[in-house]
Every structure is written in C-alpha cells, then in structure tokens.
Amino acid sequence: MLSCREVAARASALIDGELGLAQRLRMRLHLAMCRGCARFVAQLRLATALIALAGGEEPGQDPSRLAAILDRLGHPEGGDGT
C-alpha cells in the first residue's frame, strides 16, 4: 500500500488525470481508508481551482497602456526592421 508521503507526491498527477489505471486504483484505495490524505487531496484540488480563478481576472488593467501600444504601432520608430 502507498504511504501518505507517496500519495501526497502523486496528488497532482491524480488531479490532472495522468496516472495509469493501476496507480489510480492504488491511490483510490488509500484515499478511501485515510482521512488525512483524502483531506489533503481535497485541499490540493481547491488550491488548483483557485489558481485558475486567480488568473481569470485582473482589475486595474490600464486601458492607456493599450492606447500606448496602438500609438507606437501607428508611428513606428525607425531602425527595428519594420
């Protein structure tokens, strides 16, 4: 049987669906019997979901930066191969 340390090391692979059938079953078996690891994997799943959420929005994106780029594109400076 996998140790808790081994389960923790493979937790991301489990979440990402990268484990083969045998490995997945060994993980499931451990998780069914070990509350600590079940909680750990749930925590890592939450962390994974929140990481994706954190990238979803960025308040304070300054529209003037967009304008500055459009401005530079409209007036290409010489010497850089345009």
Binding site: S3, C4, R5, E6, A8, R35, G36, C37, R39, F40, A42, Q43, L46
Partner: peptide
C-alpha cells in the same frame, strides 16, 4: 513544502485539517 510533514514511515505527522471555513 512537505519535507517535515511525514514521519519515518511516511505517515502524516499532523493530519491535514478539514477546511470548514474555506
């Protein structure tokens, strides 16, 4: 980040908490 989380037999030293508030 998990270097000290396990004992010599690879078991949790301290069980991960249930994140009821989160």
């Amino acid at each position: 980040g998990l270097a000290d989380a396990f004992d010599g037999r690879g078991r949790w030293r301290r069980m991960p908490a249930l994140w009821e508030e989160l």
